[in-house]
Design a binder for these strands. Structure first.
Lengths: 151, 151
DNA sequence: TATGATGTTGACGTTCACGTTAATAATGGA
DNA sequence: TCCATTATTAACGTGAACGTCAACATCATA
């Protein structure tokens, strides 16, 4: 969460850098996916370039795991909390609290990994099907080519 | 396309077998994903069990490649045409037509495969990220455990 | 300092992939 | 033959993830 780079980008350039529209960025913020964006002189939002990776992460989870923005939000919030833990960002919580938080994060990440493995397996099956199909098509095309030669 | 098994199932049982609702089945037919379903006595639809695989295929393409039903329809229609070609289902088209059809099908399948490869690569990256994250969490959790021991 | 590009907050619109309901008809077993 | 179960069409409803528009504010620069 803590920005490593200065918040220099305005929403237009930031959105282009992320490959989305400004509307999408505002929508993500509204849904709690980007937390409070600092504003210069209390008006326009400013984005630090390291937030680009966060938006791309959102889109990846969306596209690759079929997660809703709500699921993604929950995951990011938890990750942010762990990150805050590490940098002692907020008042050092009790050992129990830290452990619970970490256990939750471990649980969540494990679930994500399981999902990833399942998807990869399904994709491999699909790959096999498609490769078989392709070779059958090529064989048919070759036959048809021979007929054509003999015209 | 040509059913290998008799159309015995009514829509309720068929939908259950596919893991969807009857509404979904009717919707797919309406969108041209299942072509004309034979009806006994001109009223109720009857499904042959081999159509289950087709519905599962639709859901896979939807979930794994993020395709719209329209994209899937186009792919299935093309595949059906090639299958019809093989079984001489409709009037033997000209050699040129057959070749064009096959070329289209080869093109489409190649595109699908490309998409599959891209997704698998992205998934592998995500897998690495998640595994790294998980081991970091576990390390943190271990630290916290030691603090706890020293209470 | 004028002005065109860019940003802001609502609020309503849109698309996809179905869900739900209603009013009616067909099926199949006691 | 009766009647509970299942199916049929038609129509409207829904949630997610934005798109679009209006009415206004602010920024950068000539």
């Amino acid at each position: 969460m803590s920005p490593q780079t200065a918040p220099t980008l305005r929403i237009g350039q930031f959105a282009v850098a992320c490959g989305v529209t400004p509307r999408t960025i505002r929508f993500y913020e509204q849904q709690g996916l980007l937390s409070s964006i600092p504003r210069q002189t209390h008006t326009m939002r400013r984005y630090s370039p390291d937030l680009i990776a966060r938006v791309e992460r959102i889109q990846h989870l969306q596209a690759l795991l079929d997660w809703s923005l709500e699921d993604i939000r929950a995951a990011l919030v938890l990750e942010d909390q762990v990150a805050a833990l590490r940098t002692q960002y907020y008042q050092n919580p009790s050992v129990i609290q830290r452990q619970n938080l970490l256990d939750e994060a471990i649980q969540l990440t494990t679930n994500q990994l399981t999902r990833v493995y399942q998807r990869m397996e399904s994709l491999q099956n699909l790959q096999r099907d498609l490769e078989d199909k392709l070779s059958r098509y090529r064989a048919l095309r070759a036959e048809s080519g021979r007929e054509d030669d003999a015209r």
